[in-house]
């Protein structure tokens, strides 16, 4: 498949994956804050939880792919960078996002 078509499809698929995850994540934040959960109480719920590990790993992976494609499009359209340079920068950014995200997931579930 042509790379432009693949990127288009991947960005939409990852958006579909993220839509319910974003809603759940926002609901979770509101619940944790309104209930006044402490960091320790939150960690007690997440540590060792396969469910939360799967939830946030999926979220981080989808966000990293989605952001890489979006960032590349922004760079191609809004900067004088060529497609190759834009792709390189976007992939670097995406990998960084993935690494930081996975590290954060590991920190709360391990």
């Amino acid at each position: 498949m042509a790379s432009a078509a693949r990127a288009y499809l991947l960005q939409r698929v990852t958006a579909l994956i993220m839509a319910p995850l974003v809603l759940a994540h926002l609901a979770l934040i509101v619940y944790a804050v309104r209930d006044g959960l402490s960091a320790g109480e939150i960690m007690a719920r997440t540590q060792g939880s396969i469910g939360w590990a799967v939830f946030y790993t999926t979220f981080v992976a989808a966000a990293a792919v989605h952001a890489t494609i979006g960032l590349r499009n922004v760079l191609v359209e809004w900067t004088p960078l060529g497609r190759r340079t834009a792709t390189l920068i976007a992939h670097t950014g995406g990998l960084l996002l993935l690494a930081l995200g996975l590290r954060a997931v590991y920190a709360v579930v391990s």
Binding site: M1, A2, S3, A4, A5, A7, Y8, R83
Partner: peptide, 12 residues
């Protein structure tokens, strides 16, 4: 369809 699916085509 191959031409329009490449960079600078319909997905832009």
């Amino acid at each position: 369809l191959r031409a329009v699916a490449s960079d600078g085509g319909c997905y832009s």
